[in-house]
Nucleic acid binder design. Structure first.
Lengths: 166, 166
DNA sequence: TGACAATCACTGCCCAGACAGGAAAATCCG
DNA sequence: CGGATTTTCCTGTCTGGGCAGTGATTGTCA
């Protein structure tokens, strides 16, 4: 188990220990609260438009051409396909996206933004940017870059462990 | 309101713009995925114990003496008191916490860990620490400190805006 | 003292994600 | 060709958060 680590069986980082764990030092709790703040701010700005912060995700991905099926969007957002199905249900009920059975592969359902969906996204993008900027009020460009770098590495480390355990 | 900013009514940071927004550059989406990774890893490690990552929050706070009422815990975790009520319901159903009407102020319900709750927390803390460490696999102590620092500032900037708008 | 506001816990009603399971369709392979 | 596997979407059922509204209690202040 430990032997195949070529460079180092190396010092597994022990920043946190079970017996001395304190909430205030946990970046996990902190992350949770930051995300909550982002979401709450965005939700408040979007409530006039009958949209939520979460619902923007699929709209952005569709507009950016990151995917045209529910499964693709779910993978992009790292969420369940079941959750995505219901999300699409809500977006479709609001007339923002369209479902169209794919003729070539009749399992898949092609998704597309409606004109209303494009309009809603255009109107929301500015709020999304504003909320992100608001939380960066006293940041320099270098600090934002550093933040993104650290977050990417957290994610990569988690994904690496996925492969091992999963 | 703007006058008290001594130095500058100053360049509002424009890291993100509505018309050029791209998912890949958004620290919001990144944050969301990191948190999801943390939660999934922890949930998998805890499923044997019939516990979820979310349910550890109140247990940790109770053990640390950060609060003894639902309202206090909710404020600590930045969540709704209604959500906390239901969370306590689930924890109580599992026999991990105890409710006790406070005699002095009969509005409040005092919360306390049961022995089973303390045991469950002790057993989980090590997994919590392990998951946090796992995502920090290639981090230095300085980088972790930097991450915490940046997250704290994001949170503070969000809270500052709360006061203004709310 | 009596009206008023604040606080606390709780409840309904939403949105939202995780997991398990199922039906239909496509693909792979013997 | 024909069965096994995989993929895609969908549907329960659970946990979980946000918001609004309720009732009980406490504190405040005229």
């Amino acid at each position: 188990m430990a032997a195949h680590r070529s460079a180092a069986p190396s010092a597994p980082p022990m920043f946190y220990r079970g017996d001395t764990y304190a909430v205030d030092n946990s970046y996990g709790f902190l992350l949770r609260r930051v995300l909550g703040s982002l979401q709450r701010h965005l939700d408040h700005r979007l409530q006039d438009r009958d949209l939520t912060a979460m619902q923007i995700g699929p709209l952005v991905l569709l507009a950016a051409g990151k995917g045209t099926t529910a499964a693709q969007l779910a993978r992009c957002l790292n969420i369940d396909t079941g959750a995505m199905t219901r999300m699409i249900d809500r977006l479709q009920a609001k007339g923002l996206v369209r479902r169209m059975r794919c003729p070539e592969d009749r399992r898949v359902v092609r998704l597309a933004l409606t004109p209303a969906g494009t309009a809603a996204l255009d109107a929301s993008a500015e709020h999304l940017a504003a909320v992100l900027n608001l939380h960066l009020a006293d940041f320099t460009a270098a600090e934002l870059a550093q933040l993104m770098h650290l977050l990417h590495r957290l994610l990569a480390n988690g994904a690496a462990a996925d492969g091992v355990e999963g």
